[in-house]
Amino acid sequence: MKTRFWVLMILIIGSLAAMVIFTGGSKNTSVMLADASHVVDQPSKYQEHELRVRGFVKPGTILRYGDKADFVMTLDGRDLKVHFDGGTQLPDTFTDAAPVRADGRLAPDTAGLLVANKVEAKCASKYEADYAKKGDFTSARFQRMAADEKVPGGDHPK
């Protein structure tokens, strides 16, 4: 009986795994989280995957044309070119030095160009603005922001 039970279990898990594998693995169902600096350093690792990349807008690099925009995302001294395809609306908080999160994929032919369909940006708060002025575009600042964030917004709503 035990053998039959385990055979059945293995069949169930096997068929589930087969379903997952044959419907495209985890490529289309998960978003890889990455820092802009890592994407620049190891583009091959991130090629062909859906990405959510975080970094800061490099001051003076935003070039808008209609709904679309080009800009450079910077983090820890590494620059990543981003092309926003106008698929969604750019938030009005999207300005120079703003912390941003871009969802998209690396362009297949051009090395190191992120084609983003969604860009979320945060407005640097008054208390945070000093860091932006000093040109602090490091991942340490993200951590500091996360710690600050906990105070004003309260906790997770659920």
């Binding site: 589930l16 379903m19 997952v20 985890s26 169902t29 998960s30 978003v31 890889m32 959510r52």
Partner: peptide
């Protein structure tokens, strides 16, 4: 690598189960 599962990732397994 670190990743965030989309709804589809859960649904694909959890619906048949």
């Amino acid at each position: 690598s670190k990743a965030e599962w989309k709804l589809t990732a859960y649904n694909r397994i959890m619906i048949p189960v």
